[in-house]
Design a protein around this nucleic acid. Structure first.
Lengths: 195, 195, 195, 195
DNA sequence: CATGAATGAGCTTTCATTCAT
DNA sequence: CATGAATGAAAGCTCATTCAT
């Protein structure tokens, strides 16, 4: 239990994420985190100003992880269309494999968690820019705004992830082929100004 | 206090929606609803078996309103592609104009509200079927499953609405043209099996 | 459901007793009684001034049933010692077969149910007098007060019933032989002044 | 407010007992205890996991006090019959002098308080064993089970205490001589197998 | 750096009861 | 004779947070 400086902060974040993943957003309480990490609730306040601050740190972390995951794909060689498709897939995977992370990053109402501070908002924005970048490459000559297109794609992917996670999709629907169809449809954004 | 029969029930539903919109689902409490509507928490239980039941009633109501709105469009004359486009628009409008309804209907996590009872679930399904119906018409002979396509479109639209409502979209983005782009992209689902 | 006058009162008492037996004292509520009997909670107040009054009526009824049961035994022919023994048995049986009746009659704290009105108290006293009567017969010439002796016996029997009902007796103890021993010991009260 | 460590815990237990005595088990609430002891309901949960746990602590305490009191008598020198008689007296005294403890230890229905945890149950059993021990001594060679006899005595004593405490005994009865008679009758258990 | 003690506000739900009709 | 609507009080419990040490 002897911890180095900073270890506790790390531990708090890890356990908070753990509970978030295991039991869902509504179940995360300072008490639970504290007892999971082996300290008192009070101690958490030495590292985080409030519960909101803790969640913002988690969100930030999530944004970074997503960025790393997407950046690998975006940086690969080869056909930009191909890369774009893989970017979409990668986003879907991230969401489905980190459901509760995804929840706080993209679903939880901003009035519930206090609004994500704007300085950290840039980190969220970078993810969108990765999409925009690859889109711009793939799209060639075009007057359409890549960020706008990226947002449309993002909306498509986000809708797919969030409906899947909240199990609102029809039970008769096969998830795998639904996701395939979503990716296929996302790729169609590249035809945007052709017609 | 001089109230007609049923007025209080209506008032409870309305105030619940109001608080939901203003403060988010997690902040809606029986106490708050009661004090907003001007009765005691106990009285709410005369009209709703539980908090969950109250929210289920709201969800049901929302599903019906959405259905009515979509049904008008779906029943119009003319080009099915055109009708499909207007259906998409109509869904977006409903979401943006009824954010409280939208929140409980499609966003709030099912772990927080007890699962929507299956007998009422059919009402929710009807909305998707409207999309599927028009899609089937517009699509002509095709081997793709209209419900599957409809789900993809729904994901696109839902993503757009939920990102807009939670103000997670880039501030530099013009909402109107974003929504136009979303509709344009949704319509592209009709090309699904052509290429 | 068409009820004659007085039927409802009867029904209320019956259902109250039923719930009392099935679910225990703490679970009996006006609501439950009303819904079991098929009327509104308000209606109960037409027949009983309060919950306490209803319970007092139940207690009175219980006392009468117990009296009837004991009176049969006390009135039998034959050896008074024998009759006394059977009286003891009969009391034990009543308690064990009507546990929740027994609960309100003899266990529930008088601060919980408002004090049993003194005019009805006489009915409770009659039961004790039955014991005293048979004891006096069996005892022959003696200067000891039969009511005092009867109270001692009552304490013995009541202790046995209440410990059995609240399952506080040692699990390794066989209930049947415990009760036999209790009766045997009760009979010994007849030796009171002999030594 | 300036309190030493442990004082609050003690105070909670004492006030809970006080309310129990004054108003009966059903009226004891966390709120009432808190306001009697001068703290918030929340604070009670720092010392007791739940209301049940609080009452279990009281039961345990009561069992220990009773044991200490009985053990002194059981350990005295002299005639075992004499000691047995004094043991009975001591039990009666404990009950009448500690009605609050007695109430939760032996009267409150187990459906209302969660079952006394089995690890602590041994403490409850020790008291009965004291009776059994002295009975075995006094009884000499005999085939009857001392625990069974002790239970019969316990029933007698418990009946006497509980009827006295709930003031169900006849008002014309002199309490002191009633208790004398109860003890006298209890001692008669020693004749059990002689005749 | 960390804690133990405590708080105040809040939660959903159930209760016995009343009153106008 | 009976109801539907409503109430006020209370229940056990959990929460994020603070503060003196």
């Amino acid at each position: 239990m002897a911890r180095n400086h900073g270890d506790l902060r790390r531990g708090i974040l890890d356990e908070a994420r753990g509970i978030l993943l295991a039991e869902g957003y509504a179940q995360v309480s300072m008490r639970k985190i504290a007892s999971a990490v082996g300290c008192t609730p009070t101690s958490i306040y030495l590292y985080f100003e409030s519960k909101d601050a803790l969640f913002h740190a988690l969100i930030e972390e999530g944004m970074e992880r997503l960025f790393e995951q997407l950046a690998v794909v975006a940086g690969e060689e080869g056909n930009p269309q191909h890369r774009f498709r893989r970017l979409c897939r990668s986003f879907l995977e991230f969401g489905l494999e980190n459901p509760e992370y995804y929840e706080i990053m993209f679903v939880v109402h901003p009035d519930q968690v206090a609004r994500f501070p704007s300085e950290k908002y840039r980190k969220a924005r970078r993810n969108l820019q990765l999409f925009a970048g690859v889109l711009a490459e793939a799209h060639g000559d075009d007057d359409s705004d890549p960020m706008a297109l990226a947002s449309v794609v993002w909306a498509q992917l986000h809708g797919a992830v969030s409906l899947t996670l909240s199990r609102r999709l029809d039970a008769s629907l096969d998830t795998a082929s639904f996701l395939d169809a979503v990716v296929a449809q996302s790729v169609r954004v590249l035809q945007s100004t052709r017609s």
